[in-house]
Measured scan of single mutants.
Amino acid sequence: KVILLEDVKGLGKKGDVVEVKDGYARNFLIPQGLAVEATKGNLKEL
């Protein structure tokens, strides 16, 4: 699961917690600054 930092077409809006494949999160969303891993600490910051 990841928390979206920006609106991502076809996935969700900023602040949404979405389930995506590990590779998509690690190789695209997180490096592009579009999402962060949905850890307990990150979820509390919402």
Rank of each mutant, 00 (worst) to 15 (best):
G33Y: 05
K44V: 13
L5Y: 03
V36I: 12
L43A: 04
K44M: 13
K1F: 12
L29N: 00
G41H: 14
Y24Q: 04
K44Y: 05
F28D: 03
E37S: 08
N42I: 05
K44W: 09
L11E: 01
L46T: 14
V36Q: 08
V18R: 05
I3K: 07
K9P: 14
V20I: 08
I3D: 00
I3E: 05
L34P: 01
V8N: 01
G10I: 03
V2R: 00
D22T: 14
K1L: 11
L46V: 13
N42W: 03
D16G: 04
E37L: 14
G10T: 07
K40N: 12
E45Y: 05
V18P: 01
L11D: 00
K13P: 02
G33W: 03
K9Y: 15
K13A: 11
I3C: 06
Q32N: 12
L43M: 06
K1D: 05
V20D: 07
G10D: 08
E37Q: 10
A35E: 01
G12I: 00
E45K: 07
L34I: 10
L11T: 04
T39K: 07
A25M: 13
K40I: 15
K14C: 08
L43K: 06
T39R: 05
E19A: 09
G33F: 08
K13Y: 12
R26H: 07
E45A: 06
R26N: 07
P31L: 13
I30E: 02
G23D: 11
G15N: 08
Y24K: 03
E45N: 13
K44S: 11
I3W: 07
G23H: 12
K21V: 14
V8K: 02
V8C: 06
N42V: 06
P31D: 12
A38I: 05
L43D: 13
V18L: 10
L11M: 06
G23A: 14
K21Y: 12
V17K: 06
K21W: 13
Y24D: 04
V20N: 02
N27W: 15
I30V: 08
L46F: 08
K44C: 11
L4P: 00
L4Q: 00
L43H: 06
V20R: 01
G23F: 14
V8H: 04
P31S: 15
Y24P: 02
L5P: 01
L5G: 01
E6I: 13
L4K: 00
R26Y: 09
I30G: 02
L34K: 10
Q32V: 07
L5A: 03
D16Y: 08
L46D: 14
D7N: 11
D16F: 08
G23L: 11
D22W: 15
K44D: 15
L5R: 07
D22L: 11
V36N: 04
L34R: 05
N42M: 07
I30T: 02
